[in-house]
Simulated assay, not measured.
Amino acid sequence: MRVVFAPDSFKGTASADRVAAALASGWRTVRPDDELVLVPMADGGEGTVDGFAMARPDGVLHDVEVEGPEGPSRSAWLELPDGTAVVELASACGIELWGDEYTFDAGTHGLGEVITAALDGGARRLLVGIGSSASTDGGAGMLAALGARIVDVDGDAIGPGNAGLAEAATLDLSDMRPLPEGGVVVLCDVTNPLLGPAGAAAVFGPQKGATPEDIPFLEENLAHLASLGTVDPFTPGAGAAGGTGWALLQWGATIEAGAGAVAREVGLEGVVATADIVVTGEGRFDDQTAAGKVPAHVASLAPGRVMLVAGSIDADTSSFLAAVDLVGLVGQDRALSDTAEALELAGSELARVTPR
């Protein structure tokens, strides 16, 4: 049989390429003669660059030093032969780089630095993954790193993070880096607006550690930034990554559903067309998965031939050939501490239930 492994990352525990490799390793222990193809996936969040690098071995990785939350940090961008560059927010200024306590100073300057490096490297088109954000700065840090002037009434640069937005008197994009000739596509798995009850502060602030008392402050500052721009803050996707979607729209980018865009770029449809079985997965499979996340998109490409592995499962899996829940398989502690081993066991379990 020909088996394709196309999982997303298990956020915080294993990148998509490691998930794919572990599942394949477990499968091979039971069915050593099957042809195994690894196509790690992403929806724009953590592991997007690494996933592309594995799926596109013709690409070249470039390391970049960026301004991290606690000093210099390392990120990377991937150069593809057609001049496309793949960058991600997660490795430059994502939530995994910050501590456990919420900070109003968290910003997106690091993402702007990676984009700048890719443009300086000759990128003619950009794919920008913006999942796994730590900030609610409306993308102001990223805009500033790309040359925007976001200044107070005295003409001085505003402070970092959401707190700095209250100081902004002018948003001047005239000296920003121009868009590359092929444009900029934002890979995003949410359609939330910047403001309102479904917006960046109300929905994503608590996920990053903001308290209920913090939300009005965050919202007010985002609304103030939006009043200085030209993009409608209620545009779908503008609230992604704490408002980074809004900032990229200001620059002239377009937003696409991340899983679908990544699948198209890595040629997943063609790969799964000849597969007997496709194995996909993510850290938490729940009701939000159907709204365009990786397992749902993979299942749509190969109906009736897809198996699922997830860290935890909290939604109906009847559309999959088989499903394995790591917590149910090995327990929560082991699923978190020995994720690779648990994934190998899950891969072997799926192989055992596959008809010979």
Rank of each mutant, 00 (worst) to 15 (best):
R2I: 12
R2A: 04
V3M: 08
A6M: 09
F10V: 05
A16P: 02
R18C: 12
W27G: 04
T29K: 13
P32S: 05
P32T: 07
L36D: 07
L36P: 03
G44L: 00
D50S: 15
D50C: 13
G51S: 08
V60E: 14
V66H: 01
E70G: 14
G71L: 06
P72Y: 08
E79L: 05
D82L: 07
V86I: 13
E88N: 09
L89G: 01
C93N: 07
E96T: 14
G99R: 07
Y102W: 14
F104A: 15
E113V: 12
E113C: 09
D120M: 11
V128G: 06
G129A: 08
G131N: 05
S132V: 05
M142R: 00
A144C: 13
G147N: 04
R149N: 10
G159L: 06
P160T: 11
A163N: 05
D172Y: 03
D172I: 04
D175G: 13
P178M: 03
P178R: 08
E181W: 10
E181A: 14
G182F: 00
G182N: 04
V185I: 12
L194T: 11
G196R: 10
A198S: 14
G199Q: 08
F204H: 06
P206G: 06
P212M: 04
I215P: 10
I215K: 09
P216L: 00
F217T: 15
E220N: 13
L222P: 06
L228E: 07
P233H: 01
F234N: 14
T235C: 09
G237P: 02
A241N: 06
G245C: 05
A247L: 06
L249F: 04
W251A: 04
I255W: 09
A261S: 12
E265V: 12
V266M: 02
V266L: 02
L268V: 03
G270N: 03
G270H: 07
V271Q: 03
D276I: 06
D276K: 01
D276F: 02
I277R: 15
V278F: 02
G281P: 00
G281V: 00
E282P: 01
T289Q: 05
A290E: 12
A291K: 15
V294R: 06
H297T: 12
V298A: 07
S300L: 08
V309L: 08
A310H: 10
D316Q: 13
S318V: 11
L326R: 03
L329C: 07
D333S: 13
R334S: 11
S337L: 12
S337C: 10
A346K: 01
G347W: 01
G347D: 02
L350Q: 02
A351P: 09
R352I: 08
R352V: 11
